[in-house]
């Protein structure tokens, strides 16, 4: 197996067992950076705008901006270190490992020839499934955000496995959507905690 894909699998799996929000964000950032490293050889020579945009998307936005945006909020809030993105028990851990196996088995039916392409699809499918496992287990908005961003990252990996490349305009629009989504996640993370303590303070009639 390609060492980068092995590292990516680690970045997907390890933060699930080390239940701290810092590790979750570190794992998320690492996923983006490793994906950028995987994509880099295929983008050579780096002379076109779409190639640069891909690197900005993977390395800068997914690798640095997304985790940093959430990190600054949690640090400002003084959030407790522990955060279980999936329940910390044997059942959940077995489920996570089983999900990886399902991803690898499923990829065999999608890509018949064994090789790097099959492994890339397997890791992407496993990433999507793990993202959904996090979403299904998560109660806190932060963990739900981690789940949603994991799914987004795995879709980007799945896109890397194909030959189809969108036009520059579409790529740019999708990147803008991702950045806006991260911005919204940051805003909700900063304000949701306060909203739990708010009641129905606005007069009922005063609404459009």
């Amino acid at each position: 197996m390609n060492p980068l894909l092995l590292a990516l699998l680690g970045a997907l799996l390890i933060p699930l067992f080390v239940s701290t929000w810092r590790m979750s964000l570190f794992g998320l950032g690492l996923q983006g950076l490793i994906m950028a490293a995987i994509a880099y050889p295929g983008l050579q020579p780096m002379s076109s705008a779409p190639s640069w945009l891909s690197i900005i998307d993977l390395a800068l936005v997914r690798g640095i901006l997304a985790p940093l945006a959430l990190y600054t909020v949690l640090r400002a809030q003084g959030a407790p270190a522990r955060n279980d993105v999936i329940s910390a028990n044997l059942f959940s851990w077995t489920l996570a490992l089983g999900t990886i196996l399902v991803g690898f088995n499923f990829s065999e039916s999608l890509v018949s020839e064994a090789g790097e392409s099959q492994t890339l699809v397997a890791v992407a499918v496993a990433g999507v499934l793990l993202g959904f496992l996090v979403l299904a287990s998560a109660v806190s908005p932060f963990s739900q955000m981690i789940g949603a961003l994991r799914v987004e990252n795995s879709i980007a990996l799945l896109e890397l496995s194909g030959d189809h490349h969108s036009s520059f305009g579409l790529q740019l629009a999708m990147l803008a959507i991702l950045v806006a989504t991260i911005g919204f996640f940051r805003w909700y993370l900063a304000t949701l905690e306060a909203s739990e303590s708010e009641g129905e303070s606005a007069p009922d009639g005063l609404t459009l």
Binding site: S195, E198, S201, A202
Partner: peptide, 12 residues
């Protein structure tokens, strides 16, 4: 809705 916590949760 400004000042209504539940609406922010629903929005999320």
């Amino acid at each position: 809705r400004p000042g209504v916590g539940r609406s922010r949760l629903a929005s999320w």
